[in-house]
Design a protein around this nucleic acid. Sequence first.
DNA 1: TCAGTTCAGTTGATATGTCAACCGGAAGCG
DNA 2: CGCTTCCGGTTGACATATCAACTGAACTGA
Lengths: 181, 181
Amino acid sequence: MGLMYQPDAARNVGMEDMTLTVDELAAWRAFVQMQELLRARLEQQLQASNGLSNADYTVLVALSEAPGRRLRAYELCDALGWEKSRLHHHFSRMCRRGLVEREQGDARAIHVTLTDTGLEALRRAAPGHAREVRRLVFDRLTEAEVRQLGAISTCLLDALLANAPRPARRSRRAASGAEPE
Amino acid sequence: MGLMYQPDAARNVGMEDMTLTVDELAAWRAFVQMQELLRARLEQQLQASNGLSNADYTVLVALSEAPGRRLRAYELCDALGWEKSRLHHHFSRMCRRGLVEREQGDARAIHVTLTDTGLEALRRAAPGHAREVRRLVFDRLTEAEVRQLGAISTCLLDALLANAPRPARRSRRAASGAEPE
DNA sequence: TCAGTTCAGTTGATATGTCAACCGGAAGCG
DNA sequence: CGCTTCCGGTTGACATATCAACTGAACTGA
């Protein structure tokens, strides 16, 4: 997703049955580009200051909030919205760095546990990361815009979760409150 | 970036000097998750229907809009906001698939040219992709929300482009109108 | 109890993105 | 001219993400 959908694109590409209006086009392009740049910046800040990737950070946060600072692998997958393979690979890398530990539970259960090292890394990284988010995002928006952004995001997120891909996935917002179903 | 910044996270992680308000937290979490899911869905749709990645698609669109369907490598970098290394690697892969061609110009100039095959692939992919964007995003939003999303995105994007990282980058919105400077 | 299925987890191939180091032509400057 | 610096482009190492195939435990139903 990039700078596509410009009015010109319709001509060049044969999208005569244009599916998006000009306003939508403009909003979409700005959104996509903003979102990519923002992601890259946050990634760089985390990486440079703490040697963590966004993915690392996300895993650490999820574990730090779990009871006993650990979760079963598939729970973590659900919480993050990751597929099991991604988690497995990433988990292995984080294990090597001592941020998390693998524990064999009963039967097939594999527990992912946050180590002290991991928690310490998260503690060091969190304030700077939060500051960056404030600096790049919330310092630029009015209160109304923050509300709008939240509303739009929630609306789109719900739709995305609802019409899920293959297996009707369960709720993706783990760790926030009561478990679904 | 994931489910971080929950009120609980502050306790667990020692972010007592909380940098984000509760409202901001909620908006941020929804935004991040929505954005990741949306990206994944669009990627899957493109990949499944046309064997293209988002990155492929973005390159194809940028080239299709360029005069003569070609750009110098660094222009393409600028247009996409990619670093040269990323472009080089991706370009090589797309070359192998016959979507684009490499042309040695004068001196150091390398021209990236859209092939007929590439244009054809773009033509086949564009309508479905646009439909997916409409289905997942614009069908869910009111006109007001579309305007808000555009305004917020533009605002944040400008800020991101302004306080650029290392070398003060030039404008990132290429291919949309007159060339900068 | 056994067959078929589901499910958690693993693995490997491949695609993708990032970083830092490098190469050689171009530009600026004495 | 000769030197340095800048810059477009290349390369390789590595981290990351995705997919499909596989393993073996647990469930299901006869």
